[in-house]
Design a protein around this nucleic acid. Structure first.
Lengths: 105, 105
DNA sequence: TCTTTATATAACGATTGTATTATATAACGT
DNA sequence: ACGTTATATAATACAATCGTTATATAAAGA
């Protein structure tokens, strides 16, 4: 019996992070532009702590980066993530986002 | 609040199937050649029913196809699956498999 | 027909993932 | 200093996932 190699483990871990609809939608939006937490809170029908937790998972794995500006924390994709190219392939293989929404908070 | 679109749901469902190390390793092997269930049973350190269950999930989603030959059931990748190209991109973005193992059962 | 081999299904338990509510922290504006 | 807004964390509940063992089915061979 083989033990699953690190390479496979890394990939499956990465894909697990993308395998949640909310996180995938978050990443899709971040592919377009930076967003703050509150953008996502009003975008999804889940609580603010739930959004915060999703963002934490993505941030901990370095898929996204954050910067604070005044009272907001803005997130963006991390172009230096080892799987960044694959992420873009996945994101662009979905339908493009409907409409560029104007910023609100 | 937006509801996550079908497209995102489909993709996240697909990625969920790939986000398990055992299933990813199975797909990696099927990318090389057909395998029967018993190949995987001796390959992994999990029970035969566990292997069978992973294969069922992949088959139900049409990612893999099966054919019966005598007492064996052989699985292969489904080249007509909507996400087949993406699957190949993911598989080839991992390290290639070490050694072509000889068939055993 | 009986045994063996290959595979699938059922029942169940442990672990993990994702939501909620309540509460804490940090920055801003008055 | 205080209230408001933006975000994070803790505690908890529930659902999904993945393993196991026990058992069923299907084909092969004696």
């Amino acid at each position: 019996m083989i033990e699953t190699t690190n390479r496979v483990d890394e990939m499956s871990q990465f894909l697990k992070l993308l395998s949640d609809g909310t996180r995938l939608e978050i990443l899709r939006r971040l592919h377009v532009r930076e967003h703050c937490v509150c953008d996502f809170v009003e975008m999804f029908d889940i609580s603010q702590p739930a959004v915060s937790r999703h963002l934490k998972l993505l941030r901990q794995s370095q898929i996204i980066l954050e910067r604070r500006e005044r009272q907001w924390i803005y997130f963006r994709l991390n172009p230096d993530h080892p799987q960044h190219d694959l992420l873009l392939t996945i994101l662009t293989s979905m339908e493009p986002l409907p409409v560029p929404a104007p910023k609100s908070c």
